Simulated scan of single mutants.
Amino acid sequence: MKELITHERLMQRLRFDAAIGALVWLPCQDVGDEFNKTMPGRRAGSIDKDGHYRITIDGRGYNGPELLWFFFNGEWPKARRARHSFRKAS
Rank of each mutant, 00 (worst) to 15 (best):
Met39Val: 02
Asp48Asn: 15
Leu68Trp: 03
Trp76Leu: 02
Gly41His: 03
Arg42Gln: 12
Arg15Cys: 11
Arg80Thr: 04
Arg81His: 13
Pro65Ala: 05
Gly74Phe: 02
Phe35Tyr: 15
Trp25His: 15
Arg13Leu: 15
Gly64Tyr: 04
Met39Cys: 07
Ala22Thr: 10
Val31Gln: 05
Ala18His: 14
Gly74Tyr: 07
Gly32Leu: 09
Gly45Val: 04
Ala19Arg: 13
Arg60Asn: 05
Arg81Glu: 15
Gly51His: 02
Arg9Cys: 06
Met11Asp: 04
Asp17Phe: 09
Ala18Gly: 10
Arg15Ile: 14
Thr56His: 04
Asp50Leu: 10
Arg9Gln: 14
Arg60Thr: 13
Ile47Phe: 08
Arg80Lys: 09
Arg42Ala: 03
Met11His: 14
Ile5Ala: 03
Lys78His: 07
Asp48Trp: 08
Lys49Ser: 13
Gly64His: 01
Phe86Gly: 10
Gly32Met: 11
Ile55Met: 10
Pro65Glu: 09
Asp58Lys: 03
Thr6Tyr: 09
Pro27Tyr: 08
Thr38Ser: 05
Asp30Arg: 07
Leu67Ser: 03
Asn63Ile: 12
Thr6Glu: 06
Ile5His: 08
Leu14Trp: 04
Glu3Trp: 06
Ala82Thr: 13
Leu14Met: 00
Glu66Lys: 01
Val31Leu: 14
Gly21Phe: 08
Leu4Glu: 12
Gly32Glu: 14
Thr38Leu: 04
Ile57Gly: 00
Gly41Lys: 00
Ile55Arg: 00
Asp58Arg: 03
Gln12Phe: 06
Gly41Asp: 03
Leu4Trp: 08
Gln29Gly: 12
Gly61Ser: 15
Ala79Leu: 11
Leu68Phe: 06
Thr6Trp: 08
Phe86Ser: 06
Leu4Gly: 01
His7Ala: 07
Arg80Gln: 12
Ile5Val: 13
Gly45Ala: 04
Asp50His: 11
His7Asp: 04
Cys28Gln: 10
Asp17Asn: 15
Leu26Thr: 11
Asp33Thr: 13
Arg13Asn: 02
Ala82His: 12
Leu68Tyr: 07
Ser85Arg: 05
Gly21Thr: 08
Phe86Asp: 02
Arg43Trp: 01
Lys49Ala: 13
Lys49Tyr: 07
Glu3Ser: 12
Gly59Ile: 07
Arg15His: 14
Arg13Pro: 01
Gly74Val: 07
Asn36Tyr: 00
Phe71Gln: 00
Arg43Gly: 01
Lys78Gly: 06
Gln12Tyr: 04
Thr56Gly: 03
Asp58Met: 12
Thr56Cys: 11
Asp50Gln: 04
Gly45Tyr: 03
Leu10Val: 12
Leu67Gln: 06
Asp50Pro: 00
Arg80Met: 14
Ile47Tyr: 04
Ser46Gly: 11
Ala82Arg: 15
Phe86Ala: 08
Gly74Trp: 02
Tyr53Arg: 05
Ala22Asn: 09
Cys28Lys: 05
Arg43Thr: 11
Leu26Arg: 15
Leu10Cys: 10
Ser46Gln: 05
Gly41Met: 02
Gly59Arg: 01
Phe70Met: 07
His52Phe: 14
Leu68Ser: 07
Tyr62Cys: 09
Phe70Glu: 05
Ile20Trp: 07
Gln12Gly: 03
Arg15Val: 13
Ile55Asp: 02
